Computed example of a mutant assay.
Amino acid sequence: MQFSSSLQPARLIHRYKRFLADVTVQGNTLTLHCPNTGKMTGCAEPDSLIYFSTSNNAKRKYAHTWELTKTAAGDFICVNTARANELAAEALAGGDIPEFAGYHQIQPEVRYGQEGSRIDFLLSAGSKPDCYIEVKSVTLLEGQDRGYFPDTVSVRAQKHVRELIACRQAGYRAAILFCVLHTGIERVSPATHLDPDYAALLSRAVAAGVECLAWQAEISPRGMRLVRPLPFTL
């Protein structure tokens, strides 16, 4: 995917109220929309170099959206969690992920399950069982190269794992696609130290046949795409 407009650089002052961030651009202060509900550990350090997009929608209160952070080590992080689904949609449509090849119908945001969920993608094919795919954005880097999900306790993510277990028990394929949106991450694991309930549920899910795949994104201010699988370990 290419960004629809050129991203502009800025320096982060601070993030606040979860959805807002103040930055400096050529000596001026600008307030951005921050499309990320997580803790953003390592993604929002004051004075970080960040990149933002600008919308031409006159109805928006905040026209600018924080998209990327560049770390002191030179790694890019996509902090806009909505981009993970866009990257997954592009990769699925292009047949770029071999494990999901051969499905001719890709439906986003389909209602399913007993807990009122929407699956990110439902894949269908005449000769295969339907495949339910939940997409997760991974940006938390700890240690030299280990990525973790989630970056804090996530009741919503726990619900999604339960729903996928139920899909498997009903005879469908079920998978979690961890989109790694931090170029410094080389392997992915559940964050047992941050959300032990999620990690325990994920272990149950894998035992039930839920597939867990991690794919890393190539990221720059021009655009992004999923380019390679990474090891995933419980």
Rank of each mutant, 00 (worst) to 15 (best):
L177N: 07
V153N: 00
L202V: 04
L87P: 01
F3A: 07
Y62M: 10
T37P: 11
A174M: 06
L230V: 13
L123P: 00
G116M: 11
V161R: 00
F232Y: 14
E99V: 03
A63M: 14
A175Q: 08
L12R: 04
S6V: 11
T54E: 15
K159T: 06
V227G: 12
L177F: 13
R118Y: 14
R162S: 10
R168D: 06
G74A: 09
G74I: 14
K59L: 13
T29Y: 06
S55V: 07
E115Y: 12
F178E: 00
L92G: 00
G95D: 04
I185R: 03
N57T: 13
T31Y: 01
Q216T: 09
S5E: 14
L92Y: 00
A205V: 03
M40D: 14
G171N: 08
S189W: 05
G223W: 06
F149S: 02
D195H: 00
N36W: 06
L123S: 03
G147Q: 12
P229G: 09
T71D: 06
A58N: 10
I13K: 14
A58S: 13
I106G: 09
L68I: 05
L7P: 09
P9V: 10
Y103G: 00
Y51H: 10
E163P: 02
D195A: 00
G209P: 01
A21N: 06
T192Q: 14
P108H: 03
A44K: 15
E134V: 03
L123E: 01
C212F: 02
A170Y: 13
F121L: 01
L92E: 02
H193A: 15
E218H: 15
E218G: 09
R225E: 07
T65L: 07
Y62I: 11
A157T: 01
N57D: 13
V161S: 02
S4K: 12
C167L: 12
E45C: 15
M224W: 12
A72H: 14
T37E: 15
S127C: 08
L164W: 01
A21I: 06
A58L: 15
D130E: 07
E115K: 15
A191Y: 07
T31R: 08
L226W: 11
A93K: 07
L177Y: 03
G113C: 03
S154K: 02
L201Y: 00
T81M: 09
S137T: 10
L30M: 14
R162K: 09
E211M: 11
R60Q: 12
A82Y: 10
V79F: 04
V161T: 02
C212Q: 05
E142D: 14
S6R: 12
I97D: 00
L49N: 09
F100S: 00
T192S: 05
S5L: 04
R146N: 04
C167M: 15
P196W: 02
I106D: 05
F232G: 05
H104M: 11
G74S: 05
Y62Q: 09
E211G: 10
D120Q: 05
P229W: 04
V155E: 07
E134Y: 04
R18H: 08
S189Q: 05
G27H: 10
Q114I: 12
Q169G: 06
V79P: 02
D75W: 11
E134A: 08
L122P: 05
H33Y: 12
R162F: 04
K70A: 10
